[in-house]
Design a protein around this nucleic acid. Structure first.
Lengths: 162, 162
DNA sequence: CTCCATGCAAAAGGTTTGCACTCCC
DNA sequence: GGGAGTGCAAACCTTTTGCATGGAG
């Protein structure tokens, strides 16, 4: 299997330290990071990397189909390096945590021709919404968290554990 | 069937001209508008309505489950008033056009318990990606549009015809 | 050597917020 | 009359862009 860097080269893209670092940051299997988080992690190994370069690189990787872009709940997009293993997502409505779920079983999802409205369909994204175990615990525990139902988009963000 | 305004009242929300106008703007069946478009249309009937009020009202409507928020392709969120008739979406990757598709047929999409990771699942969103008839025509017509493949998120936006 | 890619900084959206005023209930 | 709701404008956050410099091929 060709490495990401090989694939970059194959597309005629130059192999810079910055691109390598961004690719490394996005190496995990079940990872969903914002551009800002990618920048933060990249800066750890390459302090002089700039925000613009991170955005540029992410856009390239998305264009190459190496990384998927999730328009998640919050305002910032999430980048999902696991693009080669098609999968879907399970997201906590309260804290934003995301887990990958494999497209097994029920995933014979196809749009009947009658419903295609003349479109050619090339893919499908499925997002299950719900409550993660931690948030579920807090919900049933009315004492600690009051009015947790509101849109606490600004709250802490355990996306990391995805 | 209770009207939207009834439902607002039932929740103890005051019935202001602004809320009425936003609700009216979002009356269509297969409509997907940005906050800005809602503001524009609302301004037509109520010139003094403010942007902040439109955002506030949209957030309330979403919170009440009256309107769904789509984190679409572009940067701006889309508001879908058709929240009472659960449905999915078919979006054109090139121009951003969106069509509703009903959750018919293959839509027995459920997440197997083994894949729930301890979450309680309360809903699912399905988005089919593809090319709308118009964009399909342009694709096969290499003369008129060069390099249409790039991310032309900034391009014209026929979301209206959804 | 030649461009592609980077860094910096400013601009461009899109959305949220603080505060005084208004007007619905 | 009281407090939720509004308008205005500024703040904020995320992403994009212009331009001069730098480095991969």
């Amino acid at each position: 299997m060709t490495s990401l860097l090989d694939r970059l080269r194959a597309r005629g893209l130059r192999l810079t330290a910055q691109r390598r670092v961004v690719a490394e940051v996005l190496a995990g299997e079940h990872l969903h990071l914002t551009a800002d988080e990618v920048l933060a992690r990249a800066t750890a190994s390459l302090p002089e990397i700039s925000r613009a370069t991170v955005y540029n690189t992410l856009r390239e990787l998305v264009g190459l189909g190496e990384v998927a872009e999730l328009s998640g709940e919050g305002r910032a997009k999430l980048y999902d390096p696991n693009a080669h293993a098609p999968h879907h997502h399970l997201v906590c409505e309260r804290c934003g945590a995301i887990r990958d779920v494999s497209p097994s079983g029920a995933d014979a999802v196809a749009l009947p021709a009658a419903q295609r409205h003349g479109f050619s369909v090339s893919g499908v994204a499925i997002v299950f919404r719900g409550l993660c175990p931690a948030c579920r615990a807090q919900e049933s525990h009315p004492g600690s968290a009051r009015r947790a139902a509101s849109q606490s988009r600004t709250a802490r963000d355990p996306r990391r554990l995805a």
